[in-house]
Design a protein around this nucleic acid. Structure first.
Lengths: 335, 335
DNA sequence: ATGAAAGCGCTAACAT
DNA sequence: ATGTTAGCGCTTTCAT
């Protein structure tokens, strides 16, 4: 039989209110003797409070929703772990959902989470959304956006990275090395980070008086295989380039593979800069020069921000922009 | 204001019981007219049922706990995604926790999940546990073990892989290629899969009449960096070997890096077989020969098994052993 | 075909 | 310092 607060109260010879007070540490006015007695009995009977009952009255569940495109994209496990670590520190749990950047799934999952009464949501939203969400109409579940800086109802904070600066740093590095013809293997240009990176790319070009050429921009996906395929196509079409600035490290790694197969030397003939600095970046050959994103930190800070909001009842629309960092390794060289 | 079942009932001019029935599709005895009216009003007012209230009475939450060592280990995002996909198919959500294979954290997180009244738990348990869990005393939360085959109270099913056979296949392949001195760079030998793999390693050796040497077994961790370090040490000590069978692909990839730095050629001088077949395995140079584990499928099947158990109220202690597959690529060669 | 009412396990005024 | 009590929003028997 499941033991409830009533059982504990009965056994201890006190009221349920008293038990409730000691278990929630609202027990300044409870005598040490009763407190100890109750605690002891709770232990002894292995009492586990029923969260559903509690949530029903408090309207809090101590759980946070994490809505991301795909946990298999190596950027997100780091973020998820950061989020989970902070959540557990504060006594929260994390529920996670994969949307594949599909607006319909986003809609469905966010509403599922609201039904489950999560206290808040950490959301990496695709930018493709038609407009507002229906499910936000009657709801006040705070949302913290991570990675994507878009406008959405219910958003109470944003954690992003300066994608423009990151890209600028990467392309500038390429140009400083002496590479001249830099192709941008971008992620989907519907997503905010990619758009910002394109800006950074252009800015660096401008600064070095290199004319911007539309034909050097390739809009891709973060699907596996794209980086490899696009290089194959570039090579077939005999497009002339000597450097690649990539939308993420996976694209960069695939590009390196395709280039190697074609007998083209990295970094001697083509310099490559990735984005993210995933754990594998220093392990491949050549070690990948890339723009590091603080992905763990983004998850951690997002949860931190959310919980502060929840517990301080703050209403401020905070916006935090974290720094990227150029990590120079071996896929680029001074020419 | 939040709209509740009472509001809907009042507006529709029916009782809450009727509303409850139609929303739970227990409405065989409800007239089409009322059903439609209620549905329409629910829509119109954007009614979201309160799961806490529902769970309080039904004792079900439609959420599943996922307890894994570390989502950053590339084996787990696949598994997690498989689990999540199946869960969503069936209308469940997933709560996830990272234990770092620490028995204390496992204990804490599992009990948190039970408090939150998850309907069941998918658990990759470390083998280091003292014995039973306290929190299982008064609880009937079914647990499905994945990846690790150990004995634990409350376990209602297991999904594993034939690690012995997997290792056997890998080592046999190495031996067939003509490699003679195969070092096993194992994961922690406290964990069940590693123990099984050691068995498979020995079996293959025996079959090829290669004497087993304790000095060829290196027990490591799945922490980043270990594979690299251990090779450095091997090389310093001038230990003689011509093949590596690795506890996972990450170790293999790091080993390749260390070997390359020492000017040792893979696969010409040293043949390497990994384990898992993570997405990066075919992208590195040389492409990694490895033992594929159906990680996505393991997560998917675990949730499938759990939900079947939950909904059919079955009590069977099922055990499913999935197949591994030897994927031959370029880190091994016929000598 | 529909409704009345009890109760799930807990919290939070408010009393005492 | 402790207890009484009224819900929280829903489901579920049992009536009607």
């Amino acid at each position: 039989m499941k033991v409830t607060i009533k059982d504990i109260a009965r056994i201890a010879g006190v009221s349920t209110a008293t038990v409730s007070k000691v278990m929630n540490r609202k027990d300044e006015h409870i005598s040490q003797a009763t407190r100890e007695k109750i605690l002891k009995i709770m232990q002894e009977y292995n009492y586990i409070p029923n969260t559903a009952a509690r949530s029903l009255v408090t309207k809090k569940t101590k759980t946070i929703g994490l809505v991301i495109p795909d946990i298999r994209n190596p950027f997100f496990p780091e973020l998820a772990r950061g989020a989970e670590d902070k959540a557990h520190e504060e006594g929260y749990n994390i529920m996670f959902c994969n949307t594949d950047d599909d607006a319909e799934k986003e809609e469905k999952y966010v509403s599922m989470l609201i039904e489950k009464m999560v206290d808040g949501i950490i959301f990496t939203a695709s930018s493709k959304r038609s407009s507002g969400f229906n499910y936000l109409k009657n709801n006040r579940v705070p949302i913290i956006l991570v990675d994507r800086d878009i406008d959405l109802k219910g958003v109470k904070g944003k954690i992003t990275v300066d994608n423009c600066k990151g890209a600028y740093d990467g392309v500038k590095h390429l140009l400083q090395c002496g590479y001249k013809k830099v192709i941008f293997l971008s992620g989907p240009l519907t997503s905010h980070p990619s758009i910002e990176r394109l800006k950074g790319y252009k800015k660096a070009l401008e600064e070095f008086h290199v004319p911007y050429q539309e034909e050097y921009i390739f809009e891709g996906t973060y699907q596996r295989g794209w980086g490899y395929e696009v290089i194959k196509r570039l090579l077939e079409k005999e497009i002339d380039f000597d450097a690649l600035f990539c939308g993420n490290d996976l694209i960069a790694i695939e590009a390196i593979k395709a280039l190697k197969q074609a007998g083209i030397k990295v970094p001697q003939e083509v310099g490559i800069v990735g984005f993210d600095d995933i754990y594998i970046a220093p392990l491949i050959n050549p070690e990948l020069t890339t723009i590091r994103q603080p992905s763990y930190e983004m998850g951690y800070k997002a949860v931190d921000m959310l919980i502060k909001l929840l517990e301080k009842k703050g209403k401020s629309q905070e916006k935090v922009i974290l720094n990227t960092e150029l990590i120079i390794r071996k896929s680029t060289m001074q020419k």
